[in-house]
């Protein structure tokens, strides 16, 4: 059993191994089909998510073809070419045409996917529309804090030097506008079909502002503020998750998102105004 035998019959082992590979092919494929009905992308609630999901599906189809093709080839080769008898393996090891084919075909597919992705990427990180509602988000171990503008759309002056546990945004007490700004904890309200620009930062460690239903994720990095925008297009309640390890309470860092009509939003904002 040690050395290679002179006249082995490895065909039975080859059949088993080939079947094992084909089983992986089938199980992998079927599990995706089943998962697509139960364990899949959460219901979509934003406009930008539509194109993201389209690219996701395009990649899924391309990779499924490659997965099936390679495993089928592998399985068939294993079943067919187990060693047996005196015959030797073929002795060829170069073929320019074949090698060019499998350099250029994947290259073409990847270039197409890259171009599609670049277009979407540029759109996602484009400047927010002028009519966008602006909110500010500050992440802190382990909560999301949201700041809304005054009724006229203005934000009061802030400076990190004013920061404290009761003033996470660092609002300047001498600026009267700050009295009209609303600050909430773990409660993000958005207007349906109106773009929203979110200015995100953090005050202790890096968090990540993750809205699964909106296909939005942006790290909240202390020391810098990043603006992202998206358009919620379905009313309802959703969640903010933290997607970057931020300490022992990382798993508890949940915020709620409410998407509602402009009227409902205005009413809610008035109810939150400081007396």
């Amino acid at each position: 059993m040690s050395a290679l035998e002179r006249r082995p019959d490895e065909r039975r082992a080859g059949t088993w191994m080939g079947v094992l590979i084909l089983f992986i092919l089938a199980a992998g494929f079927v599990s995706f089909v089943v998962a697509a009905r139960i364990w899949w992308l959460p219901p979509l609630a934003s406009r930008q998510g539509v194109i993201t999901d389209q690219i996701f599906n395009a990649i899924l189809i391309a990779t499924a073809i490659a997965f099936v093709a390679v495993h089928a080839f592998l399985g068939i080769a294993l079943i067919r070419y187990g060693a047996h008898g005196e015959r030797r393996a073929a002795h060829w090891h170069e073929h320019l045409g074949a090698e060019l084919t499998w350099t250029l075909v994947p290259a073409f597919g990847l270039v197409v996917l890259a171009i599609l992705s670049e277009v979407v990427w540029a759109h996602v990180y484009s400047a927010p529309p002028r009519n966008a509602q602006v909110v500010e988000v500050v992440a802190r171990q382990f909560d999301w804090h949201v700041r809304y503008p005054a009724p006229d759309g203005r934000f009061g002056r802030t400076d990190p030097k004013f920061r404290s546990t009761s003033n996470l945004f660092g609002e300047d007490p001498s600026d009267p506008v700050n009295k009209q700004n609303v600050v909430t904890t773990n409660d993000l309200h958005l207007v349906v079909n109106r773009p929203v620009a979110v200015r995100i930062t953090a005050v202790d460690v890096i968090h990540s502002f993750f809205l699964p239903n909106f296909r939005v994720k942006q790290d909240a990095v202390p020391g810098r503020t990043v603006t992202i925008w998206f358009t919620p297009d379905r009313t309802g309640t959703y969640q903010i998750a933290c997607a970057q390890l931020c300490g022992a309470g990382h798993y508890t860092m949940r915020g709620n998102v409410t998407v509602e009509s402009q009227a409902a939003f205005d009413a809610w904002l008035r109810s939150q105004q400081k007396p």
Partner: peptide, 13 residues
């Protein structure tokens, strides 16, 4: 390849 595509990676990251 999913993760290489930046817009898809936004979700999957």
């Amino acid at each position: 390849i999913f993760l290489a595509s930046a817009p898809v990676d936004i979700y999957l990251h």
